[in-house]
């Protein structure tokens, strides 16, 4: 099942017309997923993409693999059942911020703590698209939407922070248009054995255009984001001439103009990862990359180690039935 085969992104195109709005960030994520799947070397027949409901959840129809477009919020539990039945399958779970963080928030935290071996790709556009523009769990306060004409009040959830708090063992963040960085993170997620959580900042051109423009546009990207990689200094700026210094006592960062002073990223350091995930400061660049990666045994393997599944033979059945029996 693990033979390496030569594939191209085109091999993952289906005959279905892609029905996202022109200019939607989902196209970029789809492109990256096709690229990633063509590179990981898994047979497409062993790949399953599971989704819930929402714009993002249409993605399985556009990938030439096995796909299951299920019900709102429940894709993580469906994926858990798939892995329990057949741990060999390469399972991807895709969904939006409403799907993963509102109606399905419970299942997301449980698949993370169990560490089921799947890749969870969150398309975070901070708005409900398919239902026409209501504010979402990741919308910033004050978001004016059809359901909040005077602006929303709810403080948002930070997906990466939630995943870390939920005992996720792999937590990363990237963005739709970063076509160099997104596939890199997806490849890392795929290689990780366990629940790999990737937040993808994604543009909704119709209902929340440019929500992450300051981070993803070519003009601002270098100034406003810092891409962290394990063992490397946390540098940013057009010439990578500035860096972040980690202040571990308070779990905060300050900017240094001396790149050689920058702290090194350590993706096994949970406190550092949590500090990176929750950066929300106009004076600091927004961190992207694999914040945390701490392998531990995945759910299905741990279960198998403890209680191995064995098929029940007719003889076993007879023994089971005839326990505590007597002859009349």
């Amino acid at each position: 099942m693990n033979q390496v085969i030569k594939l191209t992104p085109k091999d993952f195109e289906t005959d279905q017309e892609v029905r996202w709005c022109p200019g939607c960030g989902d196209y970029a994520i789809l492109k990256s997923m096709r690229k990633t799947l063509s590179e990981v070397g898994r047979n497409p027949d062993d790949v399953v993409v599971v989704s819930g409901i929402g714009c993002a959840a249409r993605l399985p129809y556009y990938l030439e693999t096995y796909g299951f477009h299920s019900i709102h919020g429940r894709a993580p539990s469906l994926a858990t059942g798939i892995k329990l039945a057949n741990p060999e399958l390469d399972v991807w779970v895709v969904g939006g911020d409403g799907d993963f963080l509102a109606i399905g928030g419970n299942h997301l935290t449980h698949i993370l703590r169990r560490n089921v071996d799947v890749n969870l790709i969150l398309f975070n556009n901070a708005v409900y698209g398919l239902t026409k523009g209501q504010f979402s769990p990741t919308s910033i306060p004050g978001t004016r939407s059809p359901s909040t004409p005077d602006g929303s009040v709810d403080p948002p959830v930070n997906p990466a922070t939630l995943a870390l708090g939920g005992n996720g063992s792999f937590v990363a963040r990237t963005a739709d248009t970063l076509q160099d960085h997104l596939p890199e993170v997806l490849l890392r997620a795929h290689a990780f054995v366990g629940a790999a959580f990737v937040e993808v900042l994604q543009n909704c051109i119709v209902y929340n255009d440019n929500a992450f423009g300051d981070l993803t546009s070519k003009r601002h990207r270098a100034e406003n984001t810092v891409i962290v990689r394990h063992g490397e200094p946390m540098l940013f700026g057009a010439d990578n001439d500035r860096g972040l210094i980690y202040e571990p006592v308070r779990g905060e960062f300050r900017v240094t103009g001396n790149a050689s002073e920058a702290s090194l990223h350590d993706e096994t350091n949970w406190a550092l990862a949590a500090a990176l995930a929750r950066v929300n400061d106009p004076d600091l660049p927004t961190p992207l990359g694999v914040f945390y990666c701490a392998p531990r045994e995945d759910f299905v393997s741990a279960r198998e180690d403890l209680i191995p599944y064995t098929p029940l033979s007719p003889g076993d059945l007879k023994d089971l039935l005839y326990t505590d029996s007597w002859r009349a």
């Binding site: 019900i71 469906l78 059942g81 798939i82 399958l89």
Partner: peptide
């Protein structure tokens, strides 16, 4: 584990959707 894998899910909805996932697979 003889013949049957048991899974205590986080809620009723997860329980049935995991079961559907199992049948799908």
């Amino acid at each position: 584990g003889r013949g049957i894998v048991t899974f205590q899910a986080e809620d009723e909805v997860a329980a049935i959707t995991a079961a559907i996932g199992t049948s799908y697979a």
